[in-house]
Nucleic acid binder design. Structure first.
Lengths: 219, 219
DNA sequence: GTCTATAATCGGATAGAC
DNA sequence: GTCTATCCGATTATAGAC
């Protein structure tokens, strides 16, 4: 995403029309893949770009050709995290659908993200826990409006008598927290479960438990 | 806590019996206070001990007299976090008491910790999200057994027919996640609420919501 | 686009005087 | 216990050749 086409001009007569750009995307993908992993494990300051470069198979200086500063790499990682998450959660909350169906789908989607993109979830979590110092504005503009929309939908259901009159904001916080934790706190969960990592069954149990909790309090 | 009495021997005849030790404790307290704040905001690598020292009112070299390595400071911070948390949560789960009462108290205590010690909660969260690389063993020995005890109590209640047959492990994960998030994700919550920080009312609403969810799914 | 070289700074840690 | 001085590796970033 956010593909810059800076150096098409560097391909003067262009034998193969988009080869440079294509190569750039492959390299960027490799860099970003390793960057998410390291940022999730050690945070922004704890991650040396030299190590990202090494794992991605290029030199530190070469990495800085693609991402001129460490901050630009970090922001790009978070941009991609948000892009992915927003695409999956897009327009899930529809006030005209059955609340139970919507909430089931919402929990399932959020939990699926925790399962499939735990590193993305952790990078985002670390940024928020640290006070969202580098990415606060983006969260304000891209995440908060969506959360407020979801809350508005919950409140609509309450006004229409479709669900019990709970605090819609804190209901959303609860759903977010429970689903998010299966990515962020998996290290502690695996210690409790005495297993190497969470598996499909754990996520099924989680979905059952969370869905039960959410729906049972809305009757 | 964990007060080492190394240099009582440095007070040769001792005019005022414990003055050296007392002074040490004051300095350590100041250091630890600033260390929690910085570790919570920037993580382990992101925190220069020079800045901890400056905020605590001493030189970097002087700080290293009290904490010989950065790791020892970090571990001490986490030790204190755990001490505080364990003291508050000690023996809350009693299989002979009424489940509803126990769970209400459990949620309230955990939420109170999030409100009163958000920095402690965040340092711990960051360590876990990063994979608990430096503190995993301590978590295994000091936290996991307690969580397993709590789970066992829940399962006892289920066996005795006192609560509905839910998945005890994931119920605990859910309670942990929801309460923890009011410390860890407060930056995002305040953005959604459009307020500078969470206040007493927010925590009351949170407690009501979480308690309702937990209890309603156990009938 | 990739490489070599290097600048410039930071950060943890140690030595030794007082 | 505190201070001055200092070492040394790591790290971001830039310059310039190919």
């Amino acid at each position: 995403m956010t593909t810059k086409l800076d150096e098409i001009t560097l391909e003067p007569v262009a034998g193969l029309p988009g080869k440079r750009v294509q190569h750039r995307e492959e390299v960027e993908t490799a860099i970003l893949r390793e960057a998410v992993r390291l940022f999730a494990e050690r945070g922004f300051e704890g991650t040396p770009i030299a190590e990202v470069a090494e794992r991605a198979g290029l030199s530190k200086q070469n990495l800085m050709y693609y991402f001129p500063t460490k901050q630009s790499l970090y922001k790009r990682v978070l941009d991609d995290v948000l892009d992915d998450w927003l695409a999956r959660m897009a327009s899930l909350a529809d006030p005209d659908q059955d609340p139970a169906d919507v909430l089931r789908a919402y929990v399932a989607a959020k939990l699926r993200f925790s399962r499939e993109q735990p590193l993305a979830s952790r990078v985002y979590a670390m940024e928020v826990i640290g006070g969202a110092k580098m990415y606060g504005e983006q969260i304000r503009h891209r995440v908060v409006p969506l959360l407020r929309q979801d809350i508005a939908v919950f409140e609509r259901w309450i006004a229409d008598g479709k669900i019990a009159p709970v605090n819609a904001t804190h209901l959303l916080f609860a759903v977010w927290a429970m689903t998010q934790s299966y990515a962020d706190f998996s290290a502690q969960m695996t210690l409790v479960l005495g297993r190497e990592e969470l598996d499909a069954r754990d996520f099924e149990e989680a979905e059952r438990m969370i869905t039960t909790m959410v729906l049972s309090c809305l009757n």
